[in-house]
């Protein structure tokens, strides 16, 4: 690739590169190489750990850090209590982990580390990852539902007050919408994160190519694209929070179905 062309591949940022054990690390025949994706999961976990650790001073009058951590736990606690009720409190550890893990992954993936030569990797832009998280949430819904209600859980597919002749029509629709949940849950996050990063990358290619093409193109294309990028960056920060919130909110709504049926 010629330097003056400086071609930007907007998809390259999602490439997974093995960092260690690309061939040798195997678990039951499956490759478990430590990749850049795994590295950013590790970073997310460590940063999240340090973040929550800072809120563990257990002071009666909280400092700023403790205040922020307590805000997040209170936020998840309130959300679960609003959606599920008193029984929702036991899901706080799971939903908090889910929300914060996704939130930190999204935000860390947005860090402008490219400036210093590092490449942040947003593992929530891989449907393998979001799919696993969605499947975990969906499994919890199924387990709780069948554990608490047994076969009565299937009454979830019959909305309350449905006239008898409508049941054969409505139940399959409800069933399909229920089964679509893990896909919509996982795909929503994956698509939102990927789209945002692709957009930023495409805009950055406009800036680079436009500037390389000369002063006129630089001013006509590069500058507006750069200004738009700044705005999109702010929007992406918002999306990072919203997508984490949506994932946690939908999980809590689905758990509510399992906990309380209709």
């Amino acid at each position: 690739m010629a330097a003056e062309q400086a071609k930007v591949d907007p998809m390259y940022q999602f490439t997974i590169e093995p960092l260690a054990g690309s061939g040798a690390w195997e678990l039951a025949g499956y490759n478990i190489a430590f990749t850049n994706s795994a590295l950013w999961m590790l970073i997310t976990t460590v940063v999240l750990f340090l973040f929550v650790l800072g809120g563990m001073k257990r002071e009666l009058v909280p400092g700023r850090w403790q205040m922020v951590v307590e805000f997040f736990t209170g936020f998840i606690d309130d959300m679960l209590e609003a959606n599920i009720g008193k029984a929702g409190r036991k899901y706080v550890p799971y939903v908090f982990s889910l929300f914060m893990f996704i939130l930190f992954a999204n935000l860390l993936g947005l860090l402008p580390l490219g400036v210093v030569g590092l490449h942040p990797f947003t593992f929530t832009s891989h449907f393998t990852v979001t799919g696993v998280l969605a499947i975990i949430s969906f499994s919890i819904v199924l387990l709780v539902g069948f554990w608490k209600h047994g076969l009565h859980f299937f009454s979830l597919f019959v909305p309350e007050g449905t006239p008898l002749p409508m049941i054969p029509i409505l139940a399959p629709i409800e069933f399909i919408s229920f089964m679509v949940r893990p896909f919509s849950l996982g795909l929503r996050l994956f698509v939102a994160m990927m789209a945002g990063h692709v957009l930023l990358e495409v805009l950055s290619s406009f800036v680079i190519d436009g500037t390389n093409a000369g002063a006129t193109f630089g001013l006509m294309v590069g500058l507006p694209a750069f200004i738009l990028m700044i705005g999109i960056c702010a929007l992406e920060l918002l999306v990072a929070g919203i997508q984490a919130y949506v994932f946690a909110l939908l999980t809590s709504l689905y758990i509510n179905d399992a906990e309380n049926l209709h």
């Binding site: 093995p18 499956y30 997310t44 976990t45 750990f49 650790l53 799971y94 908090f96 982990s97 891989h126």
Partner: peptide, 24 residues
Amino acid sequence: SSQVFWLLVFFGITFFVIGRGMVP
């Protein structure tokens, strides 16, 4: 396989250490 494995490892750590251990 690597993605799923490491996600389960790190999300597991997040859940058990942070979610179960620290959040309560």
